[in-house]
């Protein structure tokens, strides 16, 4: 059981590593947020599943599964909110930086 858990956790860490590389590689914001969703959703969920498998069947893993359900609903939603509000407030899709003016006060 422990070996299986460790393998799943390492898989999650590899997902996160790809995400981090992708964030710093591309210039377009929408490509970046697409890759960042790999970290936020896939990597995090895989690591948490691996931890629950590693612990076996106990009270702790029950709580972790409850948390997993919450994260499964919320984390894609956060990425969706950020991407949609960026699009609605005038971030160009073709990659040219049209930053929303932040107010210099």
């Amino acid at each position: 059981m422990e070996i299986l858990g460790n393998i799943i956790i390492i898989l999650g860490i590899i997902f996160m590593l790809f995400g981090v590389i992708g964030i710093f590689r591309y210039q377009n914001f929408f490509v970046r947020i697409l890759i960042a969703s790999k970290i936020d959703t896939v990597g995090a969920l895989t690591v948490v599943i691996g931890l629950a498998v590693k612990h076996g069947f106990s009270f702790f893993s029950l709580r972790v599964v409850l948390l997993l359900v919450l994260m499964f609903i919320i984390n894609p939603m956060v990425t969706h909110i950020i991407a949609r509000s960026a699009y609605e407030s005038g971030q160009n899709i073709d990659g040219s930086v049209d930053d929303i003016e932040e107010g210099n006060e």
């Binding site: 947020i33 960042a36 509000s85 960026a86 930086v97």
Partner: peptide, 9 residues
């Protein structure tokens, strides 16, 4: 990050 959205992300 060049835009605000990067920071929020």
């Amino acid at each position: 990050g060049p835009t605000v959205w990067d920071r929020i992300l």
